[in-house]
Design a protein around this nucleic acid. Structure first.
Ligand code: NAD
Ligand code: NAD
Lengths: 235, 235
DNA sequence: AATAAATAGTGACATAAGTCACAATATCTC
DNA sequence: GAGATATTGTGACTTATGTCACTATTTATT
């Protein structure tokens, strides 16, 4: 009964990150219970997710190194992939400077910016080139991942160029959904949308809190303070 | 039959962003069909999501301004919220400089960094202060949102300080899940995990492609090129 | 005024995701 | 080496999410 579902795959990176931290702490094993506490999910969900890796050992838990290895392999992190970045603005530079991505198998080979003043700059070891060169270099170097960090109104155009140059996957930071052919993978990292969600939940919490104050006639500001753990939001 | 679900609320920001673009283009109405095309989802899902807003007009679609207004209200964007940012590194600076957030009702009032050399800097109109001042200022100014852009190993400590100072919501960019009391909302913006997902799907696509090449004995490199639209990944 | 056409709203259904409870099993202790 | 115990793996169940097909409504057209 292999339940290789989307929701599960979304959690695998989190297990991986936890395992990584455990490894650094010299931990040998970690239980589903422990995973669950760190991730605010149900232990049985962890077990269900990891059962497909066939790596759990009864009474001990999951061996840190082996499980990490398996997840890394499943997620395709073993072989480093090269990517081109479009847009060397403040977010683009942050990505260039971010060493964490190498650890997960991503290497930003070059960046491209429409602003001629930015050409020649080097950030985090990554050189910025003129935007015009993107298409040609991408197809000639056979780069299959494109990262989009340009303003929303030019994002679709950049995506089209990347796809035309052979991109198979696009990591998009512009706050919009891109239109691409069916064989191209897009992952939208819509941070603004993420904030709106936070804003919504905060609003909900606040109104619930004031409701209970209303109901119980003041003197209950602490109400909800010890409320049931609601878990964290992401995904 | 009010289906006010999590999954739906996650899509509302996307509808909002599309409506915003439509407004700028002077569009008056937008149909569920149109929404669906832009978001790569089923039109009936759009209708179900928006039905709770009671704003759709038959034969015309959804009125852009009114619907945007309703969503903005539901998401709690009408009243601007102030936030403190911890970590004025490359990502933190990008957030300070990002004007897009104001549009959605978020104002970063001040930033805090443990590195004394960074104190006094101003990025995007936001001043960087010494990290020691965070707790005191946060509780005195009654700021309820904290943004975490510090390295993963200090993130939990910063979160604890924020919660102690009265934070009710945390927007976390460190690649880990934070432990907070049940009344505090956390949104994890785990970009590294996002990349791993992209990597996984790319790997899947590549292996499926090579499979079909194997099966049909070469000469079919184009196979999958016109594959069924798989929609985009986010959330 | 009648008709056509587009499009929202929705009940019934299908699939995905998560929870519970418990059996199976590996390790540890004495 | 026998028994206790922690912990995995999983079938049955519950809840959430998405899809389909159809009805109702509004506007445009003749
Ligand atoms: N800065 C943030 O923290 C942040 C947060 C969330 C989302 N985003 C999104 O990320 C994107 C970039 O944001 P930013 O703050 O870095 O903006 P920015 O204005 O600092 O940088 C954008 C860069 O893209 C370049 N550019 C424009 N058109 C281009 C093209 N066709 N080809 C190549 N380069 C081009 C510009 O010259 C500029 O250097 C935007 O879509 C923004 O909405 C940014
Ligand atoms: N840069 C990126 O593109 C990127 C992408 C994804 C995730 N992240 C995550 O975001 C976080 C920040 O990344 P970054 O690239 O900006 O790192 P960075 O090293 O450039 O910046 C981190 C900043 O935090 C400060 N800091 C450390 N401890 C602190 C404390 N206790 N209080 C206040 N400030 C403190 C440091 O002085 C530094 O200025 C990290 O967790 C990283 O994994 C970054």
């Amino acid at each position: 009964m292999q339940r290789l579902e989307v929701a599960m795959v979304k959690r695998l990176p989190q297990y991986y990150q936890i395992l990584n931290k455990m490894k650094q702490h010299g931990q040998e094993y970690i239980s589903s219970e422990h995973f669950a506490r760190l991730l605010n999910v149900d232990p049985s969900l962890v077990r269900r997710d990891l059962s497909c890796l066939a790596t759990g050992i009864q009474k001990l838990g999951y061996p840190v190194r082996l499980t990490m290895e398996r997840i890394g392999q499943l997620l395709g992190m073993r072989n480093t992939k090269e990517a081109f970045l479009a847009g060397a603005g403040s977010l683009g530079r942050a990505l260039m400077a971010y060493s964490g991505l190498k650890e997960y198998g991503l290497k930003i080979t070059a960046a491209f910016d429409a602003d001629p003043a930015k050409a020649g700059e080097i950030v985090g070891g990554v050189k910025v080139l003129p935007a015009e060169k993107l298409a040609d270099l991408m197809s000639r170097m056979n780069i299959s991942i494109g990262i989009i960090a340009v303003p929303a109104d030019t994002a679709q155009g950049v995506a089209d160029v990347m796809v035309g140059a052979g991109a198979l996957a696009i990591w998009n930071f512009a706050p919009m959904t891109l239109q691409v052919p069916g064989n191209v993978i897009v992952r939208n990292e819509n941070l603004a949308a993420g904030y709106m969600l936070l804003s919504y939940e905060l609003e909900q919490n606040l109104s619930r809190r004031s409701e209970s104050i209303d109901e119980k006639h003041v003197n209950e500001q602490a109400a909800g303070e010890q409320a049931l753990p609601q878990g964290e939001r992401n995904t």
